[in-house]
Structure formats: C-alpha cells, structure tokens
Design a protein around this nucleic acid. Structure first.
Lengths: 219, 219
DNA sequence: ACAAAAGTGTTACGTGTACACCCATGA
DNA sequence: TCATGGGTGTACACGTAACACTTTTGT
C-alpha cells in the first residue's frame, strides 16, 4: 500500500488567511490545483516526510507542523490504493519564501476564493480549518503566522481572520495582555498609521513556565 | 509499506475507567500485552478496518470510534516498516461482551495498573487518554460508556474518573441538568443505595437540535 | 434508630462582554 | 487642522465555585 503525506500550509498576509497550493506540472491531474505532498520514504518517519516537503517548497526548517488526520478511504485515489497522513503547518510569509514558493509553481491563495482541489484535498482543508479555529482558542498558534515583532492591532486582525468575527479592541488587548506572555518593545511600527503602534514579541520561555504551573491559555 | 490500525478501547466498570488489552497468543511478542489491532486490507477503508477489529473482539457494531493519530516512526516496529493509524473507542461493558472479550484472551484492565505494552502502544494509550480528557469537556462522550439508563451519581463518578478529581454533587447536577439533554425516567436504580436514584437517558435528538442552534456543550 | 446514599439553594467571586471617547502624528 | 488608526476604563450579566443539611429507606 502506498503511504503519502499532504500538507495544509497556512499563512497570513495583507490581513487575510492564506493557503499554499500548487498547480500540478505533471500527470496525473496536470494543471489542477492540489496541496503539496509526497510519498513517505521506506526508511523515513512520517513527520520527517512532511517536513521535507515543506522545506523543498518554502526553504523553511523550524516551522510549526502538526499531524492533522489520516485520510484512508480505499477509493480516495483512483490511481491506486494510497493513504495520506495530512499535516498542517503555520508559516510566516515573507519575501524570501514568497520567491521560493513562486519558483515551484505554488501560490498563496485567499481562503475564501479557493479553487477546487484534486482528490480529497478540499476536505483536508476543511478539516484543517476547523482544527485551526479550535486550537487557536487554547494554544498560542497565532504568533506562528505573524512576524516575530508584531503590533496588537495586527494580532487582533489575525484572530479576527481566524475566528471570522470582529473582536472588541479593548477586550482583546485586555485579554491578550493579561496572559503575560508578550514583551512590549521600545519600537513602533508606523507602516499602517501615522501615530504608530508598539511592537511586541511573544515570550516562549514565559509561556512554557506558565504552562507548567498549570494555566489555561485562552484567546 | 505495511499499514495497520490499533484500537484503544475504553470502558467503565465498577467506578473505574478500564482499557481493553490483549495477551498475545502468537509470535512476535507472544505472552506480552498489546492493544487490539490488525493490518488494513488492500481494498478496505482504514476506519472500516478499525470497526472490524472491534467487532471481532466485542461483537459490537455501532460503537463510538474515532481516529486518534497515526504512528509513523520508521523504527517503531522492529519486524519491518509498518505505520499504524490508532483509533479510540468507547464501549458499554456488559456481561455479553465480557464473555466474548475473555474468549479472545483479552482483558479489561484498570488504567492505573496497566502493564507495559508492546511497541509504542503505551504511548498510544497516553495520547488517547489526553484526548479523551480534553474531548469529554466539550462533547457528550460520557454517555457512551454508561448503560443507556444511568443515574446522576453514576455519571458523576464517571466524570470524576475521567478528570481524576472530585466534583461537587450540587454543582455537577446543576450543570448537567442545565444542558437539557437528559430525560428523567420514572424508574429508580436501587443497586447502590436503599433510597434509590432516578434513572436518566441521554436524549440524542435534543442534543443535536441544540448543537444546530449553536450551543456549547460543556461538562 | 441508624447507616448510607440521594437530593437540594444560596452566596461570593471572577470572567466575559458591551460600549465611546481621547491621543498622537504626518500630511 | 484634519483624517487616520492607536490606545484606554467602567458597569453589568453571567457562570463557576464553595459550602451543609434534609430525605428516604432497608436492615
């Protein structure tokens, strides 16, 4: 039986959630859109295969990657029996990986204008989105999608994109800051306003300490 | 590459959470304990394979079963490359399936006195337990482990076993009843007290209606 | 009558939510 | 000076958590 992995890759750019998809250059399904993926090598860990795929197309190595679900219907691939262990990844989109992505014939697509994808890949995206929305509530996923330094308005826009509903800026700031996992910097980002907004960093160490003392992250 | 499925099967009996494990009758690992499992047939859906395994050993067909996670380390099975899609199931233990289980050389083990299991099966159990504890908060899993008719004290003991902490009976009853998904019957169960406790049924229809009108089940 | 489990209400506290105005700045 | 986005505080509703006694009944 063939064993593959497919990656649902999320990014965030220009205030919108994006998905990385691929225009197939080869048969089968040449010209159709699909997720990025690969067969799992005979001596390769399944999650290593997923990381290999990601590195090839984005050049990135230390990215947030989690197993999503295994798609194992007997008839899911008309080309022959093949199960796929789907993974999802969160990526900071920047100019470097934008170029690399383009070079491989891949695209960052707005989630709400996604074209149909081959096989059961659209279903994979649906499951991944639900999971992302669920997990974002209780884990600091958001910071994986933003630049290392970000402003609170940026963070709010991201969570509004994830949850698909507007958030109140006062309540949002209050909640986020009460978690005590952000470090305020003495720099402002003036790219989107004259006044400028303070930049913050996510403090991983502090977050892990708090986790150990049993606290419940929640946004 | 070989593709298998293993099932983490939870039950509830005598006030304790139980796990169904299996003493291997054949090589490899003869005499050791393992989860129940099987290879996935070439023309068989992965989840169908899991249901087949469960039916063989418990005789049950319509049981709560969910995919847990795929275990895909290259070296997880020294006998040759094999990935396993782990599933977990929740079962109402009764005298019928107790007999069947015994016939196949399987056992219901208390979770806190579990022997070591072969391969990465102990890790699978750990992951399943964490998932169960997490999911139980937001989905009505508990009712899958109790008889169709159950008392509120029974339900409380079950949730205490899942969460591993005592719950206040007044607050517990209040919360559970406020969900409006239980139907009170005009019968009492006197097996554990002289006074007897009212029996209740979980109302699946009502639950699904409430879900549609967007409510958040929570225990 | 007593032992053993079932059943019941109230209060204090913290968390989430709704809501509107001033601030800083570059053009 | 004005347009634009950044930043702030308060009041109320709600849910959660803590807590102790009465009821029923078989022995």
């Amino acid at each position: 039986m063939h064993v593959a992995t497919d990656c649902i890759v999320f990014g965030f750019d220009a205030g919108k959630l994006k998905l990385l998809i691929f225009k197939r250059q080869l048969e089968p399904f040449r010209g159709s859109f699909s997720l990025i993926g690969s067969f799992v090598g005979l001596e390769e860990d399944v999650d290593t295969a997923a990381r290999r795929v990601l590195k090839n197309i984005t050049g990135l190595e230390n990215i947030y990657l989690e197993q999503l679900k295994t798609f194992g219907k007997a008839d899911r691939d008309p080309g022959g029996r093949c199960i796929s262990i789907a993974h999802y990844a969160l990526i900071r989109i920047d100019d470097n990986n934008k170029k690399l992505v383009a070079k491989y014939g891949a695209f960052w697509y707005d989630l709400d204008v996604l074209p149909p994808l081959v096989l059961d890949h659209s279903e994979m995206v649906d499951v991944a989105l639900k999971t992302l929305r669920q997990k974002a509530k209780h884990q600091p996923l958001g910071f994986e999608l933003l630049p290392r330094k970000f402003t609170l308005p940026q963070l709010q826009i991201l969570y509004e994109a994830i949850y698909q509903r507007p958030l109140d800026p006062r309540n949002f700031r209050k909640k986020v800051l009460s978690l005590k996992v952000l470090t305020k910097l003495n720099e402002k980002d003036k790219s989107s306003s004259k006044r400028g907004a303070y930049l913050y960093k996510f403090n991983q160490k502090k977050y892990e300490k708090l986790l150990k003392s049993g606290f419940d992250f929640q946004i």
